[in-house]
């Protein structure tokens, strides 16, 4: 039972992350997730100080707000400040993280926050952390109640605005010229990314959530020719990684989220080396052919 639940949670996170991740990867915004996952620390601390509770809801709210704020600042520095993309991400997340540490240190008497629960996360804990009603009814893991609605929102968003998102992703200039509110869609996407990041990192940890966003979509991108296929493939890869990774982690008695990431990485490597179109070995042949034809 708990095995299935753990795999279910990992897969749900994987699905949410890889759907959004496809857009991030294609729009060259992949590292935004890394920035968000570090920058939420002050959000968590402030939420904790204000609410005086460790309740997941407040944490997600505080962290989500800061995550969104981060992506806003990164975008602003890039657009208005003309700062190189990589540098603007680096500046924002190190700053927020530093502020977070300063806050924790100042209020160290009032806060008993562990590095663990902020930065590492744990799939098994989350599985055990069930939502009990006062009469003792077991409603299953709390995270599930956050993850399922989130996934539904993401799917609805992507299905309804699929064409629009596609245009923005592949030809932003054209999108602007036909009057699509590009900025609005950008912030809607980053808001979804922020909330997915914070909902997931309690389960898989702040740093590993980056892998869930990036690795399956990147693997899919090596194989797919169309956006639709890329999304489906990345979902499949993330589910396979969750299943295999979880069982390997049981065999080696080690962190399940870490092992899922390792499996996802190995899948990427496999596809990278062997893919028929973009694969390493075939690419050599291809580029050889390309130089011949040119």
């Amino acid at each position: 039972m708990s095995d299935i639940l753990t795999i279910l949670i990992a897969s749900l996170i994987g699905i949410s992350c890889s759907i959004l991740g496809c857009f991030l990867v294609l729009r060259r915004m992949a590292l935004l997730t890394d920035a968000i996952s570090h920058a939420v620390l002050p959000g968590i601390v402030i939420a904790f100080l204000l609410s005086q509770s460790r309740d997941t809801f407040f944490m997600v709210l505080g962290a989500g707000t800061f995550g969104f704020f981060t992506s806003f600042l990164v975008e602003w520095l890039q657009q208005k400040g003309k700062i190189q993309a990589d540098a603007s991400i680096g500046i924002v997340f190190t700053f927020f993280f530093a502020v977070g540490i300063i806050l924790v240190t100042q209020y160290t008497q009032e806060i008993d926050l562990d590095q663990e629960c902020v930065l590492y996360g744990d799939l098994l804990h989350v599985t055990l952390d069930v939502w009990l009603l006062t009469d003792g009814t077991n409603l299953g893991p709390k995270t599930l109640w956050l993850l399922v609605p989130l996934l539904l929102i993401i799917i609805t968003f992507v299905v309804i605005f699929y064409r629009t998102l596609q245009i923005i992703t592949f030809d932003i200039v054209f999108a602007q010229s036909i009057g699509i509110p590009v900025a609005l869609f950008h912030y809607a996407l980053t808001a979804l990314v922020s909330f997915t990041t914070v909902t997931s990192f309690e389960s898989v940890g702040a740093i590993l959530v980056v892998a869930f966003f990036i690795i399956p979509p990147a693997t899919a991108q090596l194989l797919a020719k169309r956006l639709q296929h890329m999304i489906i493939l990345s979902i499949i890869f993330s589910i396979v990684a969750s299943l295999l990774g979880y069982y390997l982690s049981v065999i080696f008695n080690s962190s399940s989220s870490g092992m899922i990431v390792v499996v996802a990485g190995l899948l990427f490597l496999l596809v990278f080396l062997l893919a028929p179109r973009g694969g390493y070995f075939n690419k050599k042949k291809l580029s050889h052919a390309a130089t011949l034809s040119s």
């Binding site: 990867v25 060259r28 915004m29 992949a30 590292l31 997730t33 890394d34 993309a85 990589d86 590492y120 940890g205 740093i207 590993l208 980056v210 892998a211 966003f213 990036i214 690795i215 990147a218 991108q221 090596l222 982690s249 080696f252 008695n253 080690s254 962190s255 989220s257 870490g258 092992m259 899922i260 990431v261 390792v262 996802a264 990485g265 990427f268 990278f272 973009g278 390493y280 690419k283 050599k284």
Partner: peptide, 28 residues
């Protein structure tokens, strides 16, 4: 060198893969 993936995507893959490996080893 061998793929059309974006630089940021590649950085993200490598960062999270190595860190994931680290976490696996650490818990092991």
């Amino acid at each position: 060198r061998a793929s059309f993936l974006g630089e940021d995507t590649i950085l993200g893959i490598v960062l999270s893969f190595f860190f994931g490996l680290g976490i696996v080893l650490l818990t092991y």
